[in-house]
Design a protein around this nucleic acid. Structure first.
Lengths: 344, 344
DNA sequence: CTGTTAGCGCTTTCAA
DNA sequence: TTGAAAGCGCTAACAG
């Protein structure tokens, strides 16, 4: 008997969804067979599969995410929390590229991206606790470790741009990378170096400072000749910090910025002060942001493959989701790359 | 009888979720009463509600999003699709601010943000069709109108930065705004103006061009004196376009960029050519991006309240979700604001 | 290879 | 004011 052409109640927005039962009826099989066919279960015969496929397509059937999620215990979503202090966090170009990498991998696995910029850490716990996402990627360092442990007890978790014992993470070789960059400066004959950072509470920046100091020590330079200037973590921090550096009156022929944004601020200040880089003062940064290494600033920097960080994080998370038995703690370090620029 | 302290099977990641039934047992009521209590149903007595609340809290209960979604027919998610041509779309600072505004409103309503950067429009149809989101916000102009109609038939939909008959949208006063900006230039004595755009296929840019022409005509200036230079929509398009403008040999004392990015490119080119702005050539843009109006460029521009666009879009979408009867077609125009800068 | 059926965890009539 | 029970749409045993 033919499927009765009942008039679908076409509501203002959204006509009635077609369920698996109607596909079953239309193709003359049981719902379980429809389910198997649509999920590529090898048990089902080719003929049946095709018949079901055709019916599903004809009816415009799409499985309900909620129903499937309930039955499978999986939402098909992955959550990403960005824990930057500024708003909107989406403006951060570093994280934007990481996000792009994450999305690339998720898309290939047909997973969806749930984003939260995380004001209150507790929401994150709810998020995973409600099963809205099958796993979580936390980008940045702003979230308390205790909160992270709480989350990890509930769901697969991967940290990005932050390394913490007991957690799976993807980060950069902050210390070694910054040592390398500083060495480049030293090899070019610079002797009076300064390190400029705008957020000493950030562990990545602290590691970079250590790298800077490693290189200073290895070169036998006087550590005192390398003042650390910490400025407020607001827009224009690098500018102000560099001004203070200059105000000390010490001789400075090289400035190492904890990141590109800070370094660009320094360049701006130097230019305003009539100093020419790199002749007078060479400047280097860290991150490899497009705007900083571009034609305007030509910043020399340690380039970070941000998209790759995102891809790796997503892969690690998917592994953790697929393999719930494995214990966390894999820490992947994406190495940085020296990118000389006009600023050096 | 006390709730038996069964040992929860603490799996590697995620101990067993506590369901509404355990809360019911612990508080000695039926599951339906738990549901009502937790959903602030006025029918339930204060005493019971409190008892249930306490039990739920003690057990760390959180409702399953999937189960609730299935029962209620609502996912609690809102999807945002960004349809920019470049990758990763998250890098676009305009959209980043819009996203921030959207998130702000969603967060207040405890809704979650599902993001897709949309390679293939058909995925979007699936997204709403699977009920993963209760509504959709599409930012940008890259998606075919037919696809949009298809989506609108399935789910509440709001367009951002694009106006289309029959769709609810939040956009800017491109034409009037650009006319205003151009007038500012003319009032400052500029007579030889050029319009610079990098993507003629974008309707927003076309509208801005019209606004430019409106002002030119109103001032009785010769339209021929206003060459339109369209350049490839890639990084550095403004630079190249401005170079071509200069190469024409025509006198030019003012350049109107279709957006800030293009305008900054023009400034860069002018500087490289040894021209000083605004003395030689004044430049204005459109969008009001922070980097363009900041200390480096000091671009004069029509500022767009991007966060507000996001907030309004979210509000309109929530209205549409709450009021499925209402027909779409509300078109909200966020007016732009003249922001003079050093470039003029 | 396919059909029957029992849930997944919650909401929501319908009774009491 | 509360309880019992019927789904929501799908998956996954378990039979056949």
């Amino acid at each position: 008997l033919a499927p009765e052409p009942e008039t679908l109640p076409e509501s203002p927005a959204g006509r009635k969804r077609v369920s698996i039962r109607e596909v079953a009826r239309a193709s003359g099989v049981a719902v379980s067979t429809v389910s198997r066919s649509l999920n590529d279960d090898p048990e089902v015969s080719e003929a049946t599969r095709e018949k079901v496929r055709a019916a599903a397509l004809a009816l415009g059937y799409r499985p309900s995410a909620a129903a499937r999620g309930l039955a499978r215990g999986r939402s098909g979503n992955v959550a990403v929390a960005i824990t930057a202090p500024h708003t909107p966090v989406f403006l951060d170009p570093f994280y934007a590229e990481v996000l792009g990498g994450i999305e690339e991998v998720l898309e290939a696995r047909d997973l969806h991206l749930l984003i939260t910029s995380l004001k209150r850490g507790h929401d994150l716990v709810s998020l995973v606790n409600e099963g809205r996402a099958d796993g979580l990627i936390v980008i940045g360092c702003e979230l308390e470790e205790e909160r992270l442990r709480e989350i990890q007890a509930l769901s697969p978790l991967v940290l990005v741009d932050r390394e913490l014992p007991g957690f799976t993470s993807v980060s950069t070789d902050n210390r070694a990378g910054m040592a390398r960059a500083t060495r480049e400066l030293i090899e070019r004959g610079r002797r009076h170096l300064a390190f400029l950072t705008d957020d000493v509470s950030n562990p990545n920046f602290r590691a970079r400072l250590e790298g800077f100091q490693d290189a200073i020590a290895a070169a036998g330079l006087d550590a005192l000749a390398a003042p650390v200037q910490s400025v407020s973590p607001q827009e224009g921090g690098g500018d102000e910090g560099a001004r203070r550096l200059l105000a000390t009156g010490r001789p400075i022929d090289g400035i190492v910025g904890a990141n590109d944004t800070t370094a660009v601020g320094a360049i701006r200040t130097l230019r305003a002060a009539g100093l020419r880089g790199p002749d007078d003062v060479a400047v280097i940064g860290f991150d490899g942001l497009a705007y900083a290494t571009g034609p305007d600033w030509g910043l020399a920097t340690m380039w970070v493959d941000k998209a790759r960080m995102g891809r790796e994080a997503a892969r690690l998370l998917l592994e953790a989701i697929d393999e719930p038995a494995a214990s966390p703690g894999r820490s992947l370090v994406v190495t940085t790359e020296w990118r000389p620029g006009r600023s050096i």
